[in-house]
Amino acid sequence: MNEDVNVILADLVKAKNFEATTAQKAGQLGKTDEEQLTYAVSQGMTLLTHNRVDFEILAQAYFAENQEHSGIILAVRRPPQEILRRLLIIFNQVTADEMKNQLLAINCCVCRCFTCYYHNFSGKNILEFSVF
């Protein structure tokens, strides 16, 4: 998890029997976004962040340079329990192989529903689903 994500979320994810670490536990505090993504790649882990703008740019750069990553999840800032609920839906429907080289955005509107989508920078959404 990027350093802008509440560290409590990692404990909540682990309590549901999924693997998670924080930037702090990984020794990545103060590192650039690029360094944090490089670290996630080296560990084969999908990176969760609230920093949509910078990580969309990084994902586009990886795509343009034919570099591989293990996936990036962009999450709107919400309470950790709400983000966890959305992550569990993703974790239970999307495999690690399906996340590879994908940018997954968790969007939330006022009605508190959310839509997730994969984007592969070819302009085609690979998967899209909504939960209310």
Score class of each variant (00 low, 15 high):
T22E: 00
T22H: 03
T22A: 01
T22K: 02
A23I: 04
A23E: 02
A23P: 02
A23H: 00
A23Q: 04
A23S: 12
A23C: 09
A23N: 00
Q24H: 12
Q24D: 04
Q24L: 14
K25I: 03
A26F: 08
G27M: 03
G27V: 03
Q28E: 11
Q28R: 11
Q28Y: 13
L29N: 09
L29E: 12
L29H: 00
L29V: 14
G30E: 08
K31L: 08
K31S: 06
K31C: 10
T32Y: 10
D33Q: 10
E34W: 11
E34R: 15
Q36E: 12
L37H: 11
L37R: 06
T38W: 01
Y39S: 14
Y39F: 15
Y39E: 07
A40M: 06
A40W: 03
A40H: 05
A40I: 07
V41G: 03
S42L: 12
S42C: 05
Q43F: 03
Q43R: 05
Q43L: 07
G44L: 04
G44Y: 02
G44F: 01
M45W: 12
T46W: 00
T46D: 01
L47A: 05
L47E: 09
L47G: 04
L47S: 07
L47R: 03
L48V: 10
T49L: 07
T49I: 02
H50R: 15
H50S: 10
H50A: 11
H50D: 05
H50V: 03
N51A: 12
N51E: 08
N51P: 09
R52G: 14
R52Y: 14
V53M: 14
D54Q: 13
D54W: 09
D54T: 13
F55H: 08
E56P: 05
E56Q: 15
I57C: 00
I57P: 06
I57K: 15
L58E: 09
L58H: 14
L58C: 12
A59M: 04
A59I: 09
Q60F: 13
Q60G: 14
Q60A: 10
Q60W: 09
Q60Y: 11
A61N: 11
A61D: 11
A61T: 13
A61S: 14
